[in-house]
């Protein structure tokens, strides 16, 4: 992924900024030009909560370029209180402890590197909740 393309998404992938539609009140992520529910285009920023619930997961054994050395790694869909869902990686988790419904929390991690000389790409991933503080 090119540098500008990585950099452009820092608000969404690191600061976890979603959109809240001012017309219907629903939240959408990734952001869109118009609301997928009502077509509205007047939004405010909605920061995705720290904690959510894993509603499905998969363990990747065959990775694409950039992830070859990280297998097996876990990806999942996380659902938040208001029903918003996002896809991400689940990290620091034992494959055996994974289960649908488990609580997870945001954690800032490396996702991949553009080779040894390119930029390091960071994003929020999720991990099993460490402490309920």
């Amino acid at each position: 992924m090119s540098v500008p393309r990585y950099w452009r998404c820092i608000p969404q992938r690191i600061k976890m900024e979603a959109l809240k539609c001012k017309s219907c009140g629903k939240t959408i992520y990734p952001p869109r030009a118009r609301c997928i529910y009502c077509g509205g285009n007047d939004f405010e920023t909605y920061v995705i909560p720290e904690k959510g619930r894993l509603i499905s997961f998969s363990i990747i054994r065959h990775a694409p370029i950039g992830f070859e050395h990280t297998t097996p790694y876990v990806v999942g869909i996380v659902e938040f209180e208001n029903g918003l869902r996002i896809s991400s990686q689940i990290t620091d988790v034992d494959i055996n402890e994974l289960k649908i419904g488990m609580e997870v929390e945001q954690v800032f991690r490396k996702v991949t590197e553009d080779g040894k000389s390119g930029i390091i790409q960071y994003a929020i991933k999720f991990r099993p909740i460490f402490q309920n503080i």
Partner: peptide, 25 residues
């Protein structure tokens, strides 16, 4: 979605796996 799925190392098989696990559950 390259920027919001593939970016995280999510493969096409794994997207279907997410659905499959959900379906079985």
């Amino acid at each position: 979605d390259f920027e919001y799925e593939v970016f995280y190392g999510i493969t096409f098989a794994s997207l279907n796996a997410l659905i499959m696990r959900r379906y079985m559950e």
